[in-house]
Design a protein around this nucleic acid. Structure first.
Lengths: 143, 143
DNA sequence: TTATTTGCAAAAACTTTGCTGATAA
DNA sequence: TTATCAGCAAAGTTTTTGCAAATAA
């Protein structure tokens, strides 16, 4: 279904807005929210609307071009890559990093054995303390 | 921090509302949304407000008495158990089941090695096809 | 008694939708 | 040329908050 490419499918219109939204999302590793991405895109297209950002993110997620991250926090976040991986969020500073999942296949089979579902994929977020916050680790209460 | 018990901490007021919300949440395995739980609680306490349900769920999640599930879908869901486990959602019927995570500890260490974060825990949701939907598996397109 | 909690209502936060004009193919 | 898409504004959905009255301890 997904070609694993960063190009937009040909059967839909390749609008300037859509291209810029995708480029900006793929240019960062920070998994921005829709409004953060909106701010980024507006530097190149001041007249774009937030609704257009939402519509295109929704559409690209449905097409498998980007990933919608719906774990933790109030707003949804978006990830410009479709490779299966997990996220880890620092409980102190909120920073989010990627975690490669090499054991995915075998994990899928364990899960299938355990619950009888046929597994297609997973979404995973760890909670932890990033290296920077570990260094400053004083008596502060973890959030 | 969390006692792993279904009792409320003594240092806070044990209001009737709080007790009923917890009882209702722990009485089901369906991981209800706040408004679903509100409907359940209202059968026993017709005058309770949705705000009270939200406030108590937020508070119990912060205390580690229940879990807030923020994966997939529009609304947050709540889980009356704090034992670390994953969820699996059927892509056809939407059903959600629990998955025990026995490999948790070793997985945490692998993740720590991989990204340098100190890992406290994780939230995990698989996507798949439940046994009932596998039986009916015809030419239908998976959602 | 008194600090915490509730119910209500209003606001906030985030996302989606209807409509008209613009535009890619 | 025309079906799709963007921009704008308005509405929808979910969650949070302020405040006065109620209540657990």
């Amino acid at each position: 279904m997904c070609k694993g490419s960063s190009m937009l499918p040909e059967k839909f219109r390749n609008t300037h807005q859509r291209q810029v939204i995708l480029e900006e999302l793929q240019s960062v590793k920070t998994h921005p929210t829709a409004d953060e991405l909106y701010a980024m895109v507006r530097q190149r297209m001041p007249r774009i609307s937030l609704a257009t950002v939402y519509r295109n993110l929704e559409w690209m997620a449905a097409e498998g071009i980007v990933q919608k991250i719906e774990v933790g926090g109030r707003q949804k976040r978006y990830d410009g890559t479709t490779a299966e991986h997990a996220h880890i969020r620092c409980v102190v500073c909120g920073r989010v990093a990627d975690v490669a999942l090499h054991q995915q296949k075998s994990a899928d089979h364990r899960i299938e054995d355990a619950c009888g579902y046929k597994v297609f994929g997973c979404r995973l977020e760890f909670r932890g303390l990033c290296p920077a916050c570990q260094e400053q680790a004083d008596c502060r209460q973890a959030v």
